[in-house]
Every structure is written in structure tokens, then in C-alpha cells.
Amino acid sequence: MSELPFGITQKELRIGIGIAVAAGIAALLPLFDQGYYLSLSVNLMLYAALCTAWTLFSGPTHYVSLASAAFFGLGTYAVALGVESIPFPILVAFGAVAAAILAGLVGAATLRLSGVYFVIFTLGLAELVRQVVTWAQAKFTGKTGLYVFTDFREMHIFWMLLALTIAIFITGWLINRSRLGFAMQIIGNDETVARHVGIDTARSKILLFMISGAFIGIAGAICAPRYAYIQPPSAFNPQISFLVVIMALLGGTKRLWGPLVGVVPFIFVMDFVAARLPNQMPIVMGIAFLAIVYFVPNGVTGVLEKALAKWKARNAPAPQAVADKPAEVRP
């Protein structure tokens, strides 16, 4: 394990170069096709960013967050509200801050309690924010939606999402090398020990949730120009939250790149379903959830890792048997 900070290792350097090359190739994609495949790739990139950001928090903590749609919608709305008078990058920053603040509030209310409260709270969060935004919009502006006109085209959005995904990976890598990352590892192992070695467990979890939420908010902000006309139900669409959970869990959340393995196939499945059986979406999502729980509880990467470990064990000489099991008994 080299999560701890003593300069960049050879291996990390090689991985870094690999990612840079892959990103470079991906960045060229919009030059070849501007139609269907680009639009599909934008979706792919969007969910790659969302699922990785989700895993940033839910991977190490095992808290199932359904707040993605709320963060995403806040980002979208930040852009929609100010697009005519404020430069786009500043609006993106607003979106990130708004999402982080919401994450902080939700975290403060629920992350001290058991995971069930957190799931339940986040389950209705997007709906709550949607109701409040709809009400406020009707009351203070008298309008039901907002127009977003920018010069951005699909390819620009793709590039921004690609950059965002890379930024999330770099952040994840930096967190792993930081005190926060080490704290999360300890919390994931044993929360009691974590508290007694001096870790403020609630604060660490809230901080991580805020970072994850901010990235999802940025993704929402980047996607705002895609909609042209934004209404609360489309910006705060709860389906986003569920799709993020499905794809991330399908890929596996132990490693930060795990979700990518789930995103790629599921986006194609979704695309197929949306085109051929548009009304069967809930059934497909239901089956996906059930299949994950029953067949791949640790995600596809979990299955692969297990297989790899088995293969290695078969090909390597048997490690020397571990002496005496730790005794469980005490007087």
C-alpha cells in the first residue's frame, strides 16, 4: 500500500502517463463524429464524472447517497439563474459551492447517525429542493422555467466533462495521500478505533461528502447549456441519483476507477432501452438493482479481483501457512 505521501512512485508515474494518453485519445473523439456517438459519449462522460464523484464519498464510507440529483440540479440552476450576466466559470464555481453547502447541511444532520437515516434523508432530498425551487420561482419571479443560451456545443460540454472527470481522479488520488484519506481508511476499518486515535469521524465524513457533492454540482453546471430551457423537474430528476448508484455499484466502489467499469456497459443498455422500450425504464432499473445485490455485491471489479487473486494463488507457490489464528476467547 503506498497511499502515504513520500513522493510519486514509479508505478504512479506510469499510471499517470497512461491516463494522460487515454484522456488525450478521448479528447479527440468529437472530431470524428458530431452526432449520435458524440451525444452518447457526453452521457458516458457525464456518468463517469458523477459515479466517480459519488464513489469518492460512498466508496470508503459505504453510505448510499441518493443526493446526486439534488447537487446536480443546484449546479444546473446556478448556471441558469446567472447565465445572462455572469461569466460561465464563476457560475460553475457557484454551483460547486451551493452543492457543497447543501452536502454540509445534510451531512451535519445525518452523518452522525446510522446509514439508514442518511439513505432516507437523501432519498427525498432532490424532491425537497425541487419543491422549494418551484415554489420560490413561482413566488418571486412568476416564471416556471429559465432559458440557457450559450455558445457551447455538445463537443465543448464533452471536453469540460472529460476535464472534470480527470480533476475528480486527481482529487481522489490527492485525498488518498492526505490525512483525510488515511482517516477514511481507518474509519472504514473501525470507527471506534478511529475516534480513539483522535479522528473527528463526523467532520471527516462531512468534508468528504462536501467534496463529492461539489463535483456533482459542477457536473450539473456544465450540463446546463445542454437543456436550453430548464424547469425544476428536469434539473432535479431523481432518476439521476438512482442511475449513479446502479452504475457505481455495478462497477464496484473499492477503487476509484471501479465505477467506470459499470458506466460503460450500462450507458449502452440505457441507450438501447430508451430507444426501443422507453416505458420499461423502471423495470430495467429494478432488475439492475436486484441483479447487483444478488449476483455482484462487490461489483464487476470485485469479481475480477477475486478471480485474479485465485489465479495468482494457483500459479504462485503456496504462502507459508499463517501461524495460530488470533484467539477470540478471553476470560
Partner: peptide, 17 residues
Amino acid sequence: LPSLDAEENVMAGAVFG
């Protein structure tokens, strides 16, 4: 802390205590 090695277990006390 079962998923960490011996050194990291001890470091937990040094880093956060």
C-alpha cells in the same frame, strides 16, 4: 485495523493523536 499493515496501524496513533 485489519485492512492496514502493521506500520500503518501504528501510524494511525502518530498521525491523529
